[in-house]
Computed example of a mutant assay.
Amino acid sequence: MSDAYRTVAEAATAEFFVQGSEFIGHVRPVDSVDAAEAFIDAVKDEYADATHNVPAYRVRTGDGGSDGHFLREYSSDEGEPSGSAGKPALNVLTQQELENCAVVVTRYYGGTNLGVGGLVRAYSRAVKEAVEAAGVVEERPHERVGITVDYDDSGTVRSILESEGYEFDADYETTVSFDVRVPRADAEALRDRLRSATSGRADLE
């Protein structure tokens, strides 16, 4: 599994009707299984009056393989006929090679049975249209690097972070603390550079 991956750019929804049934596709980028499940629970709570809320996700975890991550996939039919809802939703994520992505398709039954084939098409369409609305981007896994230094070294650290274009928050108190979001592949090199630039005075997490 490569370091870079495809995911949705932002949360989005898509809505349409099929023979009276309303389908609403919800999609969101997530960075953990817990985040995916929290998103699914939030949609289920918001649409508690719906006939079905069908979830699916594909999320990287840090517990598999020599490259350090494993892909966890999940889907559920949530009361729809077996294989007619959750699996088609998950298949869209798989076919588009999306990771760290969670979806829920909400259905309000409209009085007409769609049959398994009709359900497969509708649930697939809901995910496809939600993904299209969100847009797809390529991401690399990130991690947080914590840096604490005295004021004398804070300018040096800030200069390095800004020159690399990393996102960070700085907290100026008795000492200066930086909380930095760094691509995982670059994190150790950044730590080495900061140690060198501060002659080992930086406290790194």
Rank of each mutant, 00 (worst) to 15 (best):
V105S: 08
E139F: 03
L114I: 11
G115N: 07
V180Y: 02
Q95S: 11
L161C: 07
T112I: 15
E139G: 01
R181P: 06
T175Y: 09
R140Q: 14
K128E: 15
S163G: 10
G135K: 11
R125N: 11
G118C: 03
V145R: 00
E167Q: 12
L119C: 11
G110Q: 03
T112C: 02
V157C: 08
E139N: 12
L114W: 08
A102I: 02
E99Y: 10
A122T: 01
I160E: 15
T106F: 06
T148D: 09
V104Q: 00
N113F: 12
F178T: 06
V180D: 02
D153K: 09
A134S: 12
R121V: 07
R125D: 11
T106I: 07
S159P: 00
R144H: 13
E167K: 08
V137Y: 00
R121P: 01
D171P: 05
T106H: 09
E97F: 14
R107C: 08
T148R: 14
T112K: 05
V116A: 15
Y123E: 04
G146S: 15
G165E: 04
V176M: 07
F178Y: 11
R144C: 10
Q95W: 04
R158Y: 02
A126I: 04
V145Y: 01
E167V: 12
L98G: 10
R125H: 12
S177N: 07
Q96I: 05
V136K: 00
E97D: 14
A102K: 02
E129P: 07
G155Q: 08
E138D: 14
N113Y: 13
V157M: 02
V103T: 11
T156K: 13
T106E: 08
Q96E: 14
R107L: 12
V149M: 04
A130N: 08
Y109T: 00
Y166C: 03
Q95A: 09
A130R: 08
L119V: 10
S124A: 11
E143D: 13
T112N: 04
D169Q: 13
T174Q: 13
V120W: 00
E97L: 15
L114H: 06
V136H: 00
D152Q: 14
S124R: 04
T148C: 06
G165R: 03
E99N: 12
E138Y: 10
G165N: 02
V105Y: 10
G155Y: 09
S124H: 07
L161G: 06
L114G: 02
V120I: 14
D152E: 13
V136I: 15
L114V: 12
I160Y: 11
T156F: 03
T174S: 13
D169L: 13
I160F: 09
P141E: 10
Y172H: 12
V137N: 05
V157T: 00
R121W: 03
V145N: 05
T174H: 08
V131G: 02
F178W: 09
A170Q: 13
A130Y: 06
S163K: 13
D179M: 02
F168T: 05
T106L: 05
R144A: 14
G165L: 00
R144I: 15
V103Y: 01
G165C: 03
A133M: 09
E139L: 14
L161P: 05
K128G: 02
V149A: 01
V149C: 04
F178G: 06
V103S: 00
S124W: 01
R140P: 04
A126F: 05
V105I: 13
V180S: 00
V180C: 03
E173P: 03
